[in-house]
Design a protein around this nucleic acid. Structure first.
Lengths: 352, 352
DNA sequence: TTGTACGCGTTATCAT
DNA sequence: ATGATAACGCGTACAA
């Protein structure tokens, strides 16, 4: 073969593994071994190759690697979470874990209620051949989805409010315990008539938080009145509606725990509309510690959900073997904690 | 060649272009032409190939296409926007435009103040060989970044509050005009002492909105007092601080326009702390119409920024040629509009 | 420990 | 209008 023009005319093109191999006087395979940190390599050879790599500013072409490996250097975020702040926090956590690696993040919102959900995700995973995916609640609670990931050979880590899977595939928080503590704090402040605004049926987080609420009520020897439990679906609007139902009660509850901050903000909104003062006439606790909790008046006492840490941990679990071989020491449980602000006070004597 | 085992044993493997070619009795290249909608194809041949494609459930491998084309089927979102809701809205808009196409979205947050910004983005674009990127404000206002995209051969569309680039590369809103209208509405309601909380220096959006404010003040023949203009940086906290400065004034402004909703929420928060009633003692208008605007009390009158439509339009501009050849009819200007809610009322007689 | 030869699935070139 | 063949850049048997 005549020698190709890879000198001046190819100046603009990025160097390939071949350029490195030629300049270092080794074969492609050796360069490949250096890139992939093969242990069976002469130190001298490795250093020489690495020097050339630096000199050329060579970086492996991800597209070519993807084709050869049958796997992309992409981490997917699959979610159907309606809360913007939560989704963005998760994205930040994942990107923190991916910073400095060759991985990028692709975002894939899905529709939980679509009958095509599984087919859509399967097509997505098979086509893009993602390295792995992070599953955000509530869709992370879908076991069929996890099985699907296994089937198509895509790693996955689920995030959630309880241990739904083996620790290799799961990063969870301890919602039940955290809500128990939050409710106990209300009781300890003197409240006896405490309302609960639940999350939607079928959400594991909703169930865990209700259980924590019930744990505290029972532990204090209080009555668990069905009428004090109202349903919501994690939106501000349902928070308003549920709060109105609870505030119509007689006797009226002196405190309400909401399963997330959006709904808690709805409680504060509804109370304000009725001229009920928070926290003087009504104490409120939320869950998540999204920015809205600190930005309404009064600032919301809430349970801080360590969503960023959870996402970071999830992404590290996914790529950990590749980035730091042998580092599978990512925690599978991150604790939630109560953040006390201004929406809780002792009940008024005449009300109690 | 002996026939390969593409029956039972290869059931799991996805069909390739070779399988299609063989079954259709044509060459790979012909199949490729069908996929890429080549105009020089016999109708009969095309139909035959398409039938086989459907029969096999064949889908082209994006990794292989990326390698061969030197370009990925990925649309990047580059942003340094601190507002979660806005970023997520943009993501939704982009994904809406990409739904049903072969494109995926990868998200890339950057640090505006990093000295490595340009180098980082260049490395990102060159390595991933993105099909194109959407630039979200405020980073979209960086001309060097746009030039960089051109340099590395990556298409781009910038979003922003004013026409910063040719219509092919830009989707803008008319912030100045929208703020002029909002301020005029305040004046029309009877306000004469109107404060402004600006966005940060160097943000085009901040400048456009201030100009709109000044337009309205001047048009009404009012005095443009320097003391009535306070600086903020688009966060809730700076909104509180700036509001406190304005509310310390004597005489006190009876209305304040904030350059975004976060800061407007800060105004409401600060007013509440001081026992100043909104809207009775103070009218407030924000900008963006993010959810917080509707979720605080009173619900905020604000300017709706058509961010989702802008993002959708931006993404369509990017991939339009590929998806719908000849469809370059995406609008470059989407209008903002005033949303009247509960935070504006006429000033009290005794205050005026 | 290192190199040779080939495969991954697609598009591009240049014939016919 | 269609096809043979060579890229694209990297990974991996298997040989040395």
């Amino acid at each position: 073969m005549a020698d190709k023009d890879q000198g001046a005319s190819a100046r603009a093109a990025k160097p390939t593994i071949n350029d490195v191999a030629r300049l270092a006087g080794v074969s492609k395979k050796t360069v490949s071994r250096v890139i992939n940190r093969s242990p069976l390599l002469n130190d001298e050879t490795r250093e020489r190759v690495e020097a050339v790599i630096r000199q050329l500013g060579y970086v492996p072409n991800p597209q070519a690697r993807a084709l050869a490996l049958g796997r992309n250097f992409l981490v997917g975020l699959i979610h159907d979470n309606p809360n913007a702040q939560m989704v963005l926090n998760v994205q930040h956590g994942i990107l923190e874990a991916l910073a400095g690696t060759d991985f990028e993040m692709v975002v894939r919102p899905v529709d939980r209620n679509s009958s095509m959900l599984l087919d859509d995700v399967r097509a997505f995973l098979e086509r893009q051949r993602l390295f792995g995916v992070v599953l955000l609640p509530p869709i992370s609670e879908n076991d069929a989805l996890a099985r699907l990931c296994d089937e198509v050979g895509c790693r996955y880590v689920r995030m959630g409010s309880a241990q739904l899977d083996s620790s290799e595939h799961m990063v969870a928080s301890n919602d039940r315990e955290a809500v128990r503590e939050a409710t106990a704090y209300l009781i300890q402040s003197g409240h006896r008539l405490i309302g609960l605004i639940e999350g939607p049926d079928g959400f594991r987080s909703a169930r865990e938080r209700r259980l924590g609420f019930e744990d505290a009520i029972k532990a204090a020897g209080l009555k668990l009145a069905r009428s004090l439990i109202a349903g919501g679906n994690y939106t501000f609007e349902t928070g308003v509606t549920a709060a109105n139902r609870l505030l119509d009660l007689s006797p009226r509850p002196t405190a309400i725990f909401a399963s997330n901050d959006e709904m808690a903000a709805g409680i504060v909104f509804a109370a304000r509309e009725r001229g009920i003062s928070v926290p003087d006439d009504l104490s409120v606790i939320g869950f998540d510690d999204t920015p809205i909790a600190a930005h309404i008046w009064p600032p919301l006492t809430t349970v801080r959900w360590p969503i960023v840490s959870m996402a970071r941990s999830a992404a590290r679990k996914l790529v950990g073997d590749v980035v730091l071989p042998g580092d599978d020491s990512q925690p599978s449980m991150l604790p939630s904690m109560l953040v006390k602000r201004g929406s809780v006070a002792p009940p008024k004597p005449e009300v109690a």
